[in-house]
Amino acid sequence: MTQNRDGAGTRAGDAYDAIRQAIRTGHFGPGERLRFSSLQALCGMSVTPVREALTRLTAEGFTVLDDHRGYSVARLSLAELRDITATRQLCEGEALRLAVMKGDADWEARVVAAHHLLARIPQGREGMPSVMREDWEARHGAFHAALISACGSPTLLEICGKLSLQADRYRRMSVSVSGAARDVLGEHRELLERALARDTDGAVEALREHYGRTAAMLANFFEP
């Protein structure tokens, strides 16, 4: 029985990963209705793990459930963007403050290594600069996770991780916004330098500005 439950949980987890990735990359667009037949074909699974995955995605804000229409991809909005950004600035700012205060040599090494890997590749795809590279996105997440990894609070880290997931679709959209040129590499370098210099206030302010710039650019998309 335990093995059966574990297998079902693994299938539901795989379905969750597949559907979330399809939403993140725009395969399913904001507001699009999600049909079980399409999702089963995407995941190669029966309806049960797909339904479990949708329940989890709905709890995390990626999808919504309408009693009459079923599941659909959550729409993007300026109000949600501002709410997520402000909450990230608050929670991740505090996590960074604690990490800069508590971080040891191992933390410094993690941050330096993560930044080195991030800085070695461009954000946009070759020939398609308005489309985010998947490996850049993974390294970007790893760098921000490394920055706050020494905060000492597993609960705070979990909250920051969930907020990062919620911000993901907006972050991807920011790459394609016309006129959105900015020195992202320089912003990350400033975060690195201030953190390693143990400039607590400066690091937190740099993080707030980093997230704020993304939100400000996207505000032009929602309110041209």
Rank of each mutant, 00 (worst) to 15 (best):
L165F: 11
G7Q: 10
S46H: 08
S176Y: 01
D183F: 15
G212N: 02
R33T: 14
Y16M: 00
A18G: 00
E92C: 07
P30A: 06
M217K: 09
H210R: 08
E60D: 13
N4R: 14
A167F: 12
A180R: 13
G179A: 07
I148P: 00
Q40P: 06
F143L: 03
G29N: 07
V184Q: 13
A197S: 10
A74Q: 06
A216S: 12
E32G: 06
A113S: 06
D183G: 15
D83P: 06
A206E: 00
G179L: 04
D135W: 02
R33P: 13
Y211Q: 08
D83F: 08
T87N: 07
L34T: 10
A74W: 01
H27S: 15
D106E: 12
G26I: 01
E32A: 15
D168Y: 09
D199R: 03
A18D: 03
L118K: 00
R171P: 04
L156V: 05
P122K: 06
P30F: 11
L34K: 10
R139S: 04
K162R: 12
L42K: 08
L34F: 10
E94K: 12
I23V: 14
I159C: 05
R51N: 13
A138S: 01
P122W: 04
R189F: 12
R198A: 00
T58E: 14
M132K: 05
R120C: 09
A114M: 09
L157A: 01
R194W: 06
A41R: 13
G26M: 01
L34P: 12
A203L: 03
L39S: 05
L207W: 06
L34S: 09
L157Y: 07
H188T: 08
S130H: 07
A15S: 12
Q40N: 07
N4K: 14
Q21R: 08
T58P: 00
L57A: 04
L117F: 05
T63H: 02
A206H: 01
D14C: 12
R139N: 00
R35I: 11
R169V: 15
A12L: 02
L81Y: 05
E190I: 14
T155Y: 02
G9C: 06
D17Q: 08
E94I: 07
L90A: 03
R213F: 08
S176L: 08
R208S: 06
G186L: 14
L117A: 13
E94S: 05
R24E: 14
S164D: 11
A119D: 05
A8K: 09
A99W: 02
G7I: 14
P30C: 12
S77Q: 03
S174V: 10
D183C: 15
E209L: 10
G161Y: 04
Y211A: 06
R169D: 04
D183R: 15
E52R: 13
M132W: 07
L42H: 07
L185G: 15
V50W: 01
A197W: 00
T200F: 04
